[in-house]
Simulated scan of single mutants.
Amino acid sequence: MTVPKLPHQPRQRRRGLLLVGLLAMTGGGVLAAQTVQQLSSRSLVVVMTRDVPIGRQVTANDMATTLVGAEPGVATVPGDRLPQIVGTRAAVTLLAGTLLSPKATTDQLTPAPQQQLVPIAVKPSRLPARGFAPGDPVLVMPAPDPTTRRIVPTGIAAVVDQVKEPDTDGMVVVDLLVSDMDGPKLASLAADGRVALVLTPRRQ
């Protein structure tokens, strides 16, 4: 019995299959190289796993570590520094799922010695359009009383500690840190409700 011979593949077709194989191998090598490069550019950083309100102590259960790609301009805390963060306090409200920034926690409590914290409720129209952030230096200026012609006293220097969302009346409460000498005076001005906050330059 004669076994029929299979037709020979044209030489050009064999070359085409060989070329496809080489391209597949090359593509796989490039993909592997890209994967290695991406993994090498990722770093271990600290991420929040639970919400931590401002001022509360941060515990180990509030944080974890994760691998992220390096993003220019984004400040993060290296994962090996997690034990050093435990026991510090939240300088701002920390939200679960967000990367921890270096300035988000602090060892200092407010108010510090010889300081007082005074909350002031102001209208949004008396705040800068860009808003305030913790640490902003401000000058508290009494708004003139339209019913009198008394001279407006000199403003009081303060530092923003925290800014709350507008309440149901549309007022924004700003917690200000002032010297213990200016605390009672600022509280008296805040009770009148006629104050404006002036943003001043940060010290370098």
Rank of each mutant, 00 (worst) to 15 (best):
L186A: 08
P4I: 04
R42N: 07
R11G: 10
D80W: 00
G16C: 02
R81S: 12
Q37F: 09
R56S: 09
G73E: 03
Q162W: 14
Q34L: 12
Q57F: 03
G16P: 00
G131D: 14
G135P: 01
K5R: 12
T148A: 03
K103D: 13
Q57L: 00
G16N: 01
S40D: 15
V138F: 14
S125H: 13
V163C: 05
T65I: 07
N61V: 00
G135S: 05
S188G: 14
P102V: 05
R203A: 15
E165A: 15
L6R: 15
K103A: 12
T49P: 00
S125D: 15
T106K: 08
V36F: 05
G155C: 06
V58E: 02
S40A: 15
Q162S: 13
A75G: 02
G55A: 03
T106I: 06
G28P: 04
A158D: 08
A112I: 04
Q37A: 15
A190P: 06
L100K: 02
P10Y: 00
T98N: 00
V46N: 02
P4Q: 08
P4L: 14
I120K: 01
V77Y: 01
A196Q: 09
V30A: 14
D167S: 05
M1Q: 15
E71S: 02
V92N: 04
V86K: 11
G27Q: 02
K185D: 08
P134A: 10
V174I: 14
R14A: 00
V140Y: 01
Q115R: 13
P128S: 06
G79V: 05
D80N: 12
P128C: 11
L199K: 12
R81K: 07
D169W: 09
L109M: 12
V172M: 04
R150M: 09
G97P: 03
D169C: 01
S43G: 11
H8K: 11
R149A: 15
L99N: 04
E71V: 13
K185C: 05
V20F: 10
G21N: 02
D145S: 12
R130Y: 10
M48L: 15
F132Q: 09
A90C: 04
V36K: 10
L186S: 10
I156N: 03
M48H: 02
T35Q: 13
G79L: 03
A33I: 06
D180A: 01
V160K: 06
T66L: 08
G21T: 05
P184F: 08
K164N: 13
L44K: 06
V68L: 04
L67A: 06
Q115V: 11
T49L: 06
T88N: 14
V172Y: 06
K103I: 08
V86N: 10
E71A: 11
V140H: 05
T59P: 03
L19G: 00
G29F: 07
A33D: 11
V58N: 07
I120V: 15
L94A: 02
V159N: 07
M48R: 08
G97K: 02
L19F: 14
R14Q: 11
D175K: 07
